[in-house]
Amino acid sequence: MTKKKRISRRVIRENIQLGMLTLPVVALLAIFSYWPMFGVILAFKNYKVTQGIFGSDWMNPLFKNFDFFLKSQDAFRITRNTLLLNFLFIFAGTFCSVAFALLMYEVKKNYQVKIYQTFSILPSFLSWVAVSYIVYSLLDTDKGIINRIIEFFGGSPVAWYTTASYWPVILLIVKVWHSVGLNCIIYYASLMGIDNELFEAAEVDGATKLQRVIHISVPQLIPIITMMVLLDIGQIFRADFGMFYNVTRNVGALYSTTDVIDTYVFRTLINQGNIGMSSAASVLQSVVCFITIVTANAVVKKISPENSLF
């Protein structure tokens, strides 16, 4: 009896201590994330300054602010581009980052690792505006380096900036190039957590290098990969505006493959500045993201419950 009581008291004490540990994060989220959530109602209001957010009339019909997107003839195209391109980025980005991390793990000299890391992280320091200048210097029809190379080998120059079909690939390359160094560091740090004894034991057992990678390194990375992918999927209906807007130079001829929800909303509302409509777009993004993340998490939970997010 007394023993049981003591245990439960210990459990309570532990839980209080653990609860206190989360307190700063809980408080910060309450203030800076949960409190502003009332702003969501703006998506359903016909906002007037004189009446305030709560006093303004509801839209009639209630979802009218959503029409500019939902009833748009481009809604399908934009949704498709956003989801497909983001999916491509997540898939290829993760694959490349993991591959480079595994390769880097094979580099045994510390100074070499440092050199490679330093170089591969350089693109992450460049803002999208800077990247857009670089891409332009490569792809410009007349002065572009790539077209000059094509001409050197006797080919005819390509009008990159007016041919939409190239751009999913160009954007994919740019995105992976920009982020691979940074993401690689995350996976590399995770690999550093592997017990060296495991490798030594495997080597004693005569495992080949590839076998060691497949049976030791990759399983070590699975939890972090799953988590990163899940979190990315939670943002799948939000596009990196800076990249899509700057790198494509906002050329209209490319929209059929590069127009995503964030660029659409920006272009559509920049002249009008309608608060209700921009709130509606953000609510819509949240709803789609919510559905995808819950689905993805459910799938993960089925396969390996310990790796699911919630």
Partner: peptide
């Protein structure tokens, strides 16, 4: 407002 938003969007895509 809705039509203006959509027309603006098409216009900005095609005009240039």
């Amino acid at each position: 407002e809705t039509e203006m938003a959509q027309c603006n969007s098409v216009w900005k895509e095609y005009e240039r």
